Simulated assay, not measured.
Amino acid sequence: MLGKVCGSLTKLQFCRKIYPTTRSSSNLSMSEPVILRVLASSVKIADRAGQIVRDIMAGGQLGIVEKTGKNDLQTEADRSAQNCIVASLQAQYPDLTVVGEEGEQDLSQVPAEWIVRDYEEKALSLNCTDDLSSAKMSDLTVWVDPLDGTAEYTQGLLDHVTVLIGLSLGSRAVAGVIHQPYWNYKNKGGPIGRTFYGLVGGGVVGLNPIPPPEGSRIVATTRSHGTGLIQQALEIIQADTVLRVGGAGHKVMLLMEGQAHAYVFPSPGCKKWDTCAPEAILHAMGGKLTDMKGQTYQYHSQVEHRNSDGVLATAKASDHAWYLDTIPQVLRYHTPGDYQCGQ
């Protein structure tokens, strides 16, 4: 049996000796860098969490509840996917620190079939820079958004939905896994779902980055009818096209796949579990994500969960400075709204 995830922060060493040595932990060489071992396991865990998300939708019992209001929802898929992710990481890495969006979860009844003990072998071959290869388990924090785009999930906008597992080393986002449970779901008879992952300095696996089109400016932002600062920012940068989509992971993916040049969100609605994985993968493929002031967010386990100064991300790191220079400080340094970045 597993214990509880206390609050949003789980220190997994409190649950050691709960599981016997698993197949993945015995097969993973201790000579492999810790960061690669955790990343390799997270890839397979994200796959399983995505299957749970699909199974719950197919069953029709979403179990929707409001967390802080009608714009901040939680479903049975959020809860169950987080249980799968946290319990699986706990089984393989008892000393790992995990921060999950859904807060306190009772893991005592997690089904055995949800506990992932496998790993993605390809992830172990990623190039690992010296600072990452020397990292210890105690240096890492895993940030989990088990279902990014919950509102879209309940509304049937399934291509906006992702499972996010981000890894930080100290304060830096350095690796991430993004799983799309409903990738290709409109293609009847075809494969459904995909997972890709990346390591800063090591590249990206499972996704071929595509540069955005030249000669235009396409900007992604919140689905909410942004007024005030958001609308002013969009007008000042003179976006040719504005993509109002859900899910922080989905918005950043638009940059990765060449469908948008920038993600502009001058609002404090996002949390660290929304941005850790996307930031790491975006940086691994040559993009850049910061707050609206151009400052890098910190991801150590004790940091405030809220991204208080919004999000500014660009497909090309070299474009990032233009948005900082063009959007006035009065908009970048004043973010009173609180839209949920998943909307």
Results as ranks from 00 to 15, higher is better:
residue 6 C to E: 09
residue 10 T to C: 13
residue 12 L to P: 01
residue 22 T to F: 10
residue 24 S to D: 06
residue 25 S to A: 12
residue 30 M to L: 05
residue 41 S to C: 15
residue 41 S to H: 13
residue 43 V to H: 00
residue 51 Q to G: 05
residue 52 I to V: 15
residue 52 I to Q: 00
residue 57 M to K: 13
residue 63 G to T: 08
residue 63 G to W: 08
residue 70 K to W: 10
residue 78 D to R: 05
residue 85 I to Y: 05
residue 89 L to R: 01
residue 92 Q to P: 06
residue 96 L to I: 14
residue 97 T to P: 02
residue 106 D to M: 09
residue 114 W to M: 12
residue 115 I to A: 00
residue 117 R to D: 12
residue 118 D to S: 15
residue 120 E to S: 12
residue 124 L to I: 09
residue 125 S to G: 06
residue 132 L to D: 02
residue 138 S to E: 15
residue 138 S to H: 11
residue 139 D to G: 05
residue 141 T to L: 03
residue 146 P to Y: 06
residue 147 L to H: 08
residue 150 T to W: 06
residue 154 T to P: 02
residue 170 G to N: 05
residue 173 A to F: 14
residue 184 N to T: 11
residue 184 N to E: 11
residue 186 K to R: 14
residue 199 L to M: 10
residue 200 V to E: 01
residue 202 G to V: 07
residue 205 V to R: 02
residue 208 N to P: 08
residue 208 N to I: 14
residue 209 P to Y: 03
residue 213 P to N: 03
residue 216 S to M: 13
residue 217 R to M: 15
residue 221 T to F: 12
residue 222 T to M: 03
residue 224 S to Q: 08
residue 237 I to V: 15
residue 239 A to K: 01
residue 244 R to F: 14
residue 246 G to Y: 07
residue 248 A to D: 04
residue 250 H to L: 05
residue 253 M to N: 04
residue 255 L to T: 11
residue 255 L to M: 11
residue 257 E to A: 03
residue 258 G to F: 06
residue 262 A to G: 08
residue 265 F to P: 00
residue 265 F to Q: 00
residue 271 K to R: 11
residue 272 K to E: 04
residue 273 W to F: 11
residue 273 W to G: 00
residue 274 D to T: 06
residue 282 L to W: 15
residue 286 G to L: 14
residue 286 G to V: 12
residue 292 M to F: 08
residue 303 V to Y: 04
residue 306 R to A: 11
residue 308 S to G: 06
residue 311 V to Q: 00
residue 311 V to M: 01
residue 312 L to I: 08
residue 319 D to E: 13
residue 325 D to F: 06
residue 326 T to A: 03
residue 330 V to S: 07
residue 333 Y to L: 14
residue 335 T to I: 12
